[in-house]
Each structure stands twice: as C-alpha cells, then as structure tokens.
Design a protein around this nucleic acid. Sequence first.
DNA 1: CTGAAAGCGCTAACAA
DNA 2: TTGTTAGCGCTTTCAG
Lengths: 335, 335
Amino acid sequence: MDSLPRVKMADVARTAGVSVATVSKVVNGRYGVSQRTLERVQEVIADLGYEASLGARSLRSYRTNVLGILVAEFEPFSAELLKGAGSAVAATGYELLAYSGGGGGSAEVGWERRYLSRLSGTLIDGAIIVTPTVIEARPGVPVVAVDPHAGPTGMPTVDSDNLAGAVLATQHLLDLGHRRIAFLGGRPDLASARLREEGFRRAMSAAGVAVDETLVGMGDYRRGAAQEPARAMLDRADPPTAVFAANDLSALAVLDVARDLGLSVPSELSVIGFDNVPESALSTPPLTTVAQPLQDMGAAALHLLVDLIAGTDVTTHRRLPTSLVPRASTAPPRP
Amino acid sequence: MDSLPRVKMADVARTAGVSVATVSKVVNGRYGVSQRTLERVQEVIADLGYEASLGARSLRSYRTNVLGILVAEFEPFSAELLKGAGSAVAATGYELLAYSGGGGGSAEVGWERRYLSRLSGTLIDGAIIVTPTVIEARPGVPVVAVDPHAGPTGMPTVDSDNLAGAVLATQHLLDLGHRRIAFLGGRPDLASARLREEGFRRAMSAAGVAVDETLVGMGDYRRGAAQEPARAMLDRADPPTAVFAANDLSALAVLDVARDLGLSVPSELSVIGFDNVPESALSTPPLTTVAQPLQDMGAAALHLLVDLIAGTDVTTHRRLPTSLVPRASTAPPRP
DNA sequence: CTGAAAGCGCTAACAA
DNA sequence: TTGTTAGCGCTTTCAG
C-alpha cells in the first residue's frame, strides 16, 4: 500500500518535453496546439494515467462539470433520490458528487448551508439539496431543493403531492370501514408533515368522521423517535383500529410497537405509511403506503438543475403525483 | 436566484480587521491567537456564514477529513453499500463524498482509476471503491475495495462469501426437488461470477446431479443484457424447472422472460437470485435470493478504511457471510 | 504555436 | 500574538 504521489500536470509536461500550459491546452481541448505536440502529449497522458485534480482545476476555472447532491444522511429516502438523479445524469455529460456529513445523531441544523459553502464556488456547478430545513436566500450556485421542509420558497423546488397523498391514505382506511383512525405525524415545522396532517383531517371531515384529538400524535419521521407516541396511542383502553403514520419509518415504528403489544397487524390494527421506500415492502407484514415517485423526483431535480445552469428553464416548481400502494398491513376492522 | 459570490476568507479577514493567516488559524484551531481576536473572528465568521472551500483547502493541506466512495453508477447495489457506509461514518468524525460519473450505458472500463486520480491527492483522505474491475497497483491514497471483480489482490478488500452463497442457493433448489436446474451466470472475468458458478457446480455434483451445459447461460449482471440468454434457456422443448441467476437483476430478467413466455412462477418455474437488493422483494412474485449483507459490507469497508488511514489495522480482507432469503419465487417442481 | 507568469482560496513556515 | 510570504496544481492571458 505504498501511496505513490499522484501524477500531476508538471510530470506530464516534463515527460513530453513541453510546458504545463501546453498540457493544459491539450487536456481542455483548446486551440493553438500543433498536431504533433497534441499527439505526443496525449500519448504521455495515457502512459502516465494522468487525470486532472478536481480540486486544483476548480480553483481556477469555476466550471467543473460536476453536480452536487447534498444530503443530511444517506438513508433510504435520499438513497432513492440518488438513484433517480444518478440515472438522469448519464445523458447530461455531468458527473455526480453526493455529499453528506456524519448525519446520524449529530445532524445539526444548517448542514445544507455549510455543505453548500464548502462545495460551491469551487467543485460543483450546481446543487440539489435534499429536504433542507433552512433555505439559503442566495446560494453561490444554482440550487434545486427536493422536498424542502419549509415549503416552496423562492427556490426552484421538486416535491410530491403530499396533500392528495394523505387524502388517499385516509380514504383507503375509511373505505375499509375504519372510523377510529389515529394519525402519527411529523414535526409541525415541516411543510410535508403539515400537509399530510391536513390531508388526513380533510378526508376525515369529508367523510363526516370526527377526529379524536387524543389519537393525533407527533413523531419526527425517525423510527426511534416515533416509538413513544405510537405506544401512547395504542396502549390504552380504547385504541384506534387503524393508524396513518406520516412516513414509512414512523409506520415501521408502529409495527414494532404493535408487535410488542401483541397486536396483530392487520387483523387487529391496520397501519399505513407514506413514502414507499424499499424498506416498506420488506417489513412483516409488508406495509401499505402512499408512494412518492422518489426516483422520478431525483431525476426531475437533476433535469431542473441542468436547465437552470443552462438558463433554458425558469420552472420554479415541479410537483409529482402520489399514489396508493396497497400491501398487507391494512384490512377491514374487526366486526 | 442571484448567485452572490461566496464569502471567502479574505472577506472575513477584512471585516474582522485581521489578516487571512489569522482567520486561518482560528478556523483550524491553531495556537497563537489572542482570546479577543479569536472571539472577534468567530463572530464575523458566524455573521457572514463563512465556510472554507473544500477545494482550496485540500490543495494545500493534504488532510480534508473527507472519505470518498467511488461507484460506477448509483444503482441498488451501491446504494445499499452507501447506506451502510453512511451510518458507519457518523461516529468517525469524517464526512462522506460519493462520486459517480454518468455511468449508465457509457460505464467505461477504468472509471475507478480516473475517479481516484481526480479526487485523491486532493479532496479525499481515502477511498472505498465499489466493484472495481481494474485494480490500481499504487493509488495515491489509502483504498479499500468492495467486491472487487478481480478477486482479492494486494489491496484491502471487503466481500461476501460468494461460494457458500451459491451452494446455498443451489441446495435450496435441490432440496425442493429440482433436478433440471439452469444457471444464468455473469461475465466470467469477474471473480464473484466465477465463484457463484463454481458453487453451483459443486452443489450439483455433491448431490450427484449432472449439469446440463446447454442450461448454463451467460449474462453480465444487468437486467437488459440477461433477457436474451434467459429466453434461450426457457424457450425450448425441454426447459429447466428452476433457474439460479447469478444476481438479482438477472433473476428479475428471468422473471420478465417467464412472464413473457406465459410461464407461471413458481408453479412452472422456480427462480432464485443473489444479492438481496431491496428491489428483489418488490417483484412479482417476490424473489427468493441469497443475501449479501450489503449495508454491513459498506460499514465494514468504511471502518477498515479509517483504520488504514490511522495505521491501526493491517487487516487485508474481510469476508462476510451470505444467507438464504426464501420468498415466493421458488417451489417444488410440478410432479 | 508555445511558454512564462500571474493568480484561484487557502495553509504553513517564518518574521516582525 | 500577528502579518508576510510562499506555494498547492491548475488555467489563462499575453509575450515571444
């Protein structure tokens, strides 16, 4: 594992018997190099396996051909977006750089601003920021936000129809015959969480079913944190017959708690989630959920960003549809 | 979307009335700054929202506290590894940068070397390379390979027990009563593909069942490319009763072809895959497969890399166990 | 057509 | 304790 020093442009220049300036021209396809020199230099580059350093290059040129996708953490949700962005980037000629801090417990507020300053101005020509909570007024580069927690602001945004999706989920439970339905929400400061709760209330009200406020809990979209409110709503004398959790991770937490309490899903309790991350299909029983087209959203964000950089698009907001994915965690309530 | 120029160290210095050197010292926590100056500068940094540019910093300092994970493409397999590496990085104090070119159709050979030279020497302190085909003799930074196609070389490596896994898969089919079993392999130049084929042959031979060589096909691990060989083995007078595909994507291709041919899975044809990517659980029917602990592998690679950089570990190879995941695509053959 | 020279934003000696 | 001064590897005028 001797880490030999990298081949740098000066090495190529010396070997080829030219100046670094000439090598740079060859590398960047600039005019003003004779055919002979061109070939000679290209040969040396191939021989030595030279590749320009992204860091050094970007310091000077302000155009790197690399797009960034900034996430707080590589979890199922952002991984799906990444797959979508990754397949979309192929045709564009850009390369993709995904960046994340440790995340985990220490996901400090403001990570998006920090990462952006770290990378923008150098390194990347534009960025996709996933679920930012703090929206930067004027970033250094073109930026597209995916599912921003503060809701659409001035910044170009891609999200899905949270409201309609929540109605879909609630309607599904109502259609099955449930009336005593709990809602396990996310943090009220997040736009998507608010919209999902609103969808729940609208659908209930449209069906003429009153919402029992003691059955409305609050998680924070994380599996661990959702356990406690889930337990509070299930471990009581008059438990609900169904729970609509505001995202899949919370729904999985409900499944955990139900198992713990000896409640059988779906015969004694129906559970529905939101997101349709792959993990939702792997639970026991597989989770009924509302799909956000995560990969499409990633691809849409990437295309929007590319257009933004090229200046060919002024679209400021793309909203993709949500849809019901019935699986095995919901059923009619016991008679 | 006015992209205001980034705040740079010089701006901070000017505003605070000190030199850039002093700001640098504050940012990097060096000694030799008075309490007063320290506080003043930190205040300005907070006010202006300054964050050092990764590119510029790494150009000088050769220590960035960023680890790279290089993939040809963000697909299900690498996405799982990324999740694992992402959760493992939290405790280490490093940040994670995942890099991929367009990938897609134009996944040229040698991408790993190109990406590595692009990022190493600057930007990253070490790298995890996912399924590299060409192993670099002496990279510029510490490197760990995950599931290298050439098999363990001198480079520290993380992989799973492909041989045992393939035996498991084949045994599963044999146990169900299958005797006419096809094998849809990967490219023979890839170590994992070779090992999976060998496991298949060993299990068959141990059971005293002869391998019909006309039922051994060759894909390349991609869904599209596996369709043709799959069709060739199924669309004939004496088709197999079961297929062992060397990875999940190929197995999904077999499912595609079977549906196309009107073959019902698993009643008329059993199919088993390898990898246990999330997508394998989402197919119809859900795919029986052999699990590689993908997230654990990502985490193991990350820890190995951190130890390598710290010089506290000389482990050169971590092999994780594989296990059978029975789902609905396999069943006893029709009598 | 080619090369010398001046930076890009930052860190690290070294002086003051 | 502070500032001055060289660069890191590369791109880009601008002379030759």
